[in-house]
Design a protein around this nucleic acid. Structure first.
Lengths: 211, 211
DNA sequence: CATGTTATACAAACTAGTCGGTATAAATAC
DNA sequence: GTATTTATACCGACTAGTTTGTATAACATG
């Protein structure tokens, strides 16, 4: 049996991801990836038949990893509380924790592809869309379930659910512009507080408050 | 009197902006810009001494235009209401209106530069940061003023203020991923509802509600 | 007549992708 | 158990095309 090439392939993908998040994939040359990974051209084209294929594999893997994270996260919060609203709030806390002391220049490959039209073809776009909607769907379900018992203030709960992703994507950009990586955790927590307030600001008869 | 070249310069910037938002500036060649603008190479290098200079001028102009928008928007909302919270809520409504029936592929040049490291040098980054902070500072002031009279639920008001930009940058990315341009207006309105709820969910003694 | 614009040619560097060849290690033959 | 085959993994020089930027001569215009 020949030597295992999957390590090399992973190294190529990891290196490409790092450079893509920093400088964009379009302006990252294959040579640059190879120099950083200390590999050579032949190897690259042995594993990927073109740069476009690398681009596609890269985003596919990114989406897969995000999906795994999603499955893990919802399993954890659903085991921590039976209450739908609490589960959403816990998810935010979990997410904030993940980004405490995270990478100094955090980013999202999907966002990067968004602004590099050629990479964002129907296949990669659709893969991103599907994964993003999964998060929003879960949160929307939970918010609507919560809305049955505790009446929230008027707001479109679908939009509030989608805002979870919006916060991340937006916070990445502010983090880079401000050079403040911890803005991500802070924003998710602010989002959590706003959602909590939404369900505490519901129509009239309120009770059960500490004050 | 010599011929006025500012029209040509503006055309070059406009064309470059359009292509940069679509495909990224790094992967947009000068020839591409010139073909679309129906100009020639000599003209380009008459107006800009390099592609890097174009990149810088492009983001400077973008920031300037955003600043003008900012001045206009706060002047309008401050004339529409004396109440600080209402001013913030009105700003959201105004912003949402701006993005109703906006461009089909809306985006932000700053976000684009964020993921194209080479373009995002200290000069352009700083220009973006300054402008973004201006919006956040204004909103933070208003929220803190509002917090004096109506006690909001607990939340970091600085983060809530910064979230205004976060929503935009994030919504641009979702709009592109979902191919739903109207998500931007919807998200700003959802943000507005959340902020309103925050100030309606404050500690105990509540009165003056329609219910 | 200075400023702005066209048109074209060119060079130097860079980039994606090709191709012939090498290394390794397991599978098989003898 | 040594020799041979075979498939996979990897190397690095090379090609063809693109890109930025320069040069230059002529034309337009206010």
């Amino acid at each position: 049996m020949p030597k295992d090439g999957s390590k090399t392939r992973t190294l190529l993908l990891d290196t490409a991801l790092e450079l893509a998040l920093e400088n964009g994939l379009a302006s990252t040359s294959i040579d640059e990836i190879l120099e950083k990974a200390k590999l050579t051209k032949g190897t690259f084209f042995y594993h990927f038949k073109s740069k476009d294929e690398l681009a596609l594999e890269l985003v596919k893997r990114f989406v897969e990893q995000d999906h795994a994270l999603y499955l893990d996260a919802i399993a954890r919060v659903e085991s921590l509380s039976r209450d739908a609203l609490q589960q959403v709030l816990l998810l935010c806390g979990l997410a904030a924790e993940m980004f405490k002391d995270g990478p100094e220049n955090p980013g999202c490959l999907m966002a990067s592809y968004c602004y590099e039209g050629q990479l964002f073809n129907e296949e990669s776009r659709k893969a991103c869309e599907t994964q993003l909607r999964q998060w929003a769907d879960w949160i929307e379900d939970k918010l609507k379930e919560a809305a049955k018992t505790r009446k929230p203030a008027p707001a479109n709960l679908r939009q509030v659910a989608e805002m979870f992703q919006v916060i991340f994507e937006g916070a990445f950009i502010l983090a880079r512009t401000y050079k403040e990586p911890d803005i991500i955790a802070k924003q998710v927590l602010a989002y959590r507080d706003l959602v909590e307030a939404l369900f505490n600001a519901g129509p009239a008869p309120r009770s059960r408050r500490k004050g």
